[in-house]
Design a protein around this nucleic acid. Structure first.
Length: 641
RNA sequence: GCCCACGUAGCUCAGUCGGCAGAGCGCGUCCUUGGUAAGGACGAGGUCACCGGUUCAAAUCCGGUCGUGGGCUCCA
């Protein structure tokens, strides 16, 4: 009699099966429907192919297309099919890696001729044939030596390099439709489980992401087990395009780029309003949180950068200015100079902590290919701050930073997520201080009951840090804020304070940013709000629309009383029809349109139309002013997104 | 920086096989005076990114430069 194993289902029931039973068989016993929908199986936490024998007692979970894990399996299987199609259509192409990624998959190829858009269509056609052939994905475990022999014969040098790094004696290979790839798996049972797919783009990449190594051709694609999900995915891409801050920035006249200053935005008057409002809000928050503000020079002698270490490690990213007598560099960071503010006078332990904010304009010479809209620029304005404190104050100060950050974000509707990064292998500074600091950071996170993810050994070489990410309205994550401890800079710049025993001691330094840079943050805000800013941020808050020339006089009165109360208001007195004026204001995403004519002039009222919402009816001008003032002062969200 | 694609009016874009530079929006002037998303007429506006080459002839073909976009971490 054959040996039996115990299979435990997610609901706790157990079923006995003969040893070597496959996921397919287990699923069939549970139900025919499940067997049909099954894509993979989780066995004791590991993903298995449905055809792979289970050899021991196991807790299992049959995965259908409802699970995220099975999506990655579908994507990965599709990348194999794509690789097969590519090698058939373009003989001599060598395969490298083809993993699933966030929303699909890619495969990197070494090919003599780069792929064209037409090639993508050909590849898609061939893939469709393979998929409809309903070929099985079969797994085989073979000796590594045999695998080496096999891929050597095929001339797949990249697979050989991968094999040389594998320590196990056996490796797995997967075959579909007579095409075989080295792969850890698992895969979907048959090619026909893929119901929809699309190849999205061609891109260059490097073998192992290393620019010194072979340049490869990457094809990105995505696939799903039904038509609908692909459609949804393509819609998301479309939606993201509509929200693109470069497009909206141009339409709303927020900023412009010009060849004359690559990577540096020209802020137009409308965009400047965003900067001014953010600055105002930021400074209010900083004042409340006990910060002082400083400003340090933009152009500094290179000896400063030598001392800070930037000259050795960051010079490629710095703009260097030689006036013929002296070599200067534009500051790429504020921190080294902030130490001069601290050291401008003798500090006592009683003075600490000192929190120095700097809204500083920085220049970084990013390589041309890295630039992108407002997200990656060469000149930007950082909302920076440096805190100088006693080691015993770390927890409290980090707490303060986190509170400031979550407070700041809440009015934009952002939920912060925290990542705690600890000491990396290559770290500078006193190990004892490192330990203390990590304990203190953890204490800060714990006292606030903050849910965080630990990124071990991911800290900066000069200290541990907490990174904060937010998700925007489209669910995309952005890293904006960071809180970093620094033990190295106080050392390099020989900072000190006088302790209670009249002895010199080193302070600990914290670098922190709330939203990183104005440029990037505004880019994120534009996409988050689709340009439909809350009223307090909107470049133009109200437009007054007289119905005809006869009403310009009253419209001017309305306009002036709004100006007087500090509302940003335009008067649209063009000889256009009201409909056209409304259309133009809607296009410019202006929060409020005040239509005024005969009726309104008679009783000092305005007819309010709200952006994207429509006619709100008539109300007294005074009432409207009171309401909009309140909305602006409280910095209310408009919930239009 | 590297690979691919792209660069035509302020904006969005068309321009076939190499043969006189186009549209809509916007802008200007005039007409129109209106009740919640485009009223009408006329007009101005171009070194086809830049430099060079091929050709009788280049926006168009070739080479280079600059700029823009996508990608270059997601580990068989």
């Amino acid at each position: 009699m054959k040996e039996e194993i115990k299979i435990t289902l997610p609901d706790g029931t157990t079923i006995k099966h003969p040893k070597g039973v496959t996921g397919n068989e287990v699923a069939s016993v549970i139900g025919a429907g499940l067997a049909k929908a099954a894509l993979s199986i989780k066995v004791n936490g590991n993903l298995y192919d449905l055809s792979r024998p289970i050899l021991e007692d196991a807790e299992i979970e049959i995965l259908t297309d409802k699970s995220d894990e099975s999506k990655t399996i579908i994507w990965h299987s599709t990348s194999h099919i794509m690789a097969q199609a590519v090698q058939e259509l373009f003989p001599g192409t060598k395969v490298t890696l083809g993993p699933p990624i966030a929303d699909g998959f890619y495969y990197d190829f070494d090919t003599e001729k780069p792929f064209t858009t037409d090639d993508l269509l050909k590849i898609e056609t061939r893939m469709a044939e393979i998929i409809s052939g309903d070929h099985e994905f079969t797994r085989e475990t073979i000796q590594k030596d045999d695998a080496i022999k096999m891929f050597k014969e095929k001339g797949e040098e990249y697979k050989l390099e991968i094999l040389s790094e594998i320590e196990d004696e056996t490796v797995s290979i997967y075959t579909q439709n007579d095409w075989t790839d080295l792969c850890r798996g698992p895969h979907i049972p048959t090619t026909s489980k893929i119901k929809s797919f699309k190849l999205l783009k061609i891109a260059g990449s490097y073998w192992r992401g290393d620019e010194k190594r072979q340049q490869l051709q990457r094809i990105y694609g995505t696939s799903y087990s039904n038509e609908k999900e692909l459609e949804q995915h393509l819609n998301r891409l479309k939606e993201a395009k509509l929200r693109d801050h470069r497009k909206i920035g141009k339409e709303l006249e927020l900023f412009a780029f010009h060849d004359i200053a690559p990577g540096s935005p020209f802020w137009l008057p409308n965009g400047m309003i965003l900067i001014r409002e953010l600055e105002k809000y930021l400074r209010e928050k900083l004042d409340e949180a006990g910060y002082v503000e400083a400003s340090t020079p933009m152009l500094v002698k290179k000896s400063l950068w030598e001392k800070s270490g930037h000259w050795d490690y960051y010079r490629d990213n710095m703009f260097v200015v030689d006036d013929g007598e002296e070599v200067y560099a534009l500051k790429p960071m504020n921190c080294p100079e902030s130490t001069y503010i601290y050291a401008a006078k003798t500090r006592s332990y009683r003075d600490l902590p000192i929190r120095i904010a700097e809204i500083g304009r920085l220049h970084r010479n990013e390589v041309s290919g890295a630039l992108g809209g407002l997200f990656r620029v060469r000149q930007f304005t950082m909302d920076d701050a440096h805190l100088f404190l006693l080691p015993s104050q770390i927890t409290e100060e980090v707490n303060g930073c986190m509170k400031l950050i979550s407070d700041f974000y809440s009015i934009f509707g952002f939920e912060p997520k925290y990542y705690f990064a600890t000491k990396p292998d290559k770290a500078l500074g006193d190990p004892e201080l490192w330990d203390k600091a990590e304990v203190a950071l953890k204490a800060a996170l714990d006292t606030q009951n903050i849910d965080y993810k630990l990124n071990e050994k991911d800290g900066a070489f000069y200290g541990p840090k907490i990174d904060i990410q937010v998700k925007d309205a489209l669910g995309r994550s952005w890293q904006l804020a960071t809180i970093q401890l620094d033990f190295v800079l106080p050392e390099r710049f020989e900072l000190n304070y006088i302790d209670e025993n009249d002895k010199k001691q080193r302070p600990v330094m914290i670098h922190r940013a709330i939203f990183g840079s104005f440029e990037r943050f505004i880019g994120v805000l534009i996409e988050h709000f689709t340009g439909n800013f809350p009223t307090w941020l909107a470049p133009v808050q109200v437009v007054v629309i007289p119905i005809s020339e006869k009403h310009i006089k009253y419209a001017t009165k309305v306009y002036e009383s709004l100006i007087k109360t500090g509302v940003r208001v335009n008067l649209d007195s063009r000889s256009e029809k009201m409909g056209a004026k409304i259309r133009d204001s809607e296009t410019m995403k202006i929060p409020y349109m005040l239509v005024v004519g005969e009726k309104e002039a008679e009783n000092s009222s305005v007819s309010v139309r709200k952006h994207l919402t429509g006619d709100q009816g008539q109300k007294p001008l005074e009432e409207f002013i009171k309401e909009i003032k309140e909305e602006i002062t409280e910095r209310r969200l408009n919930n239009l997104n």
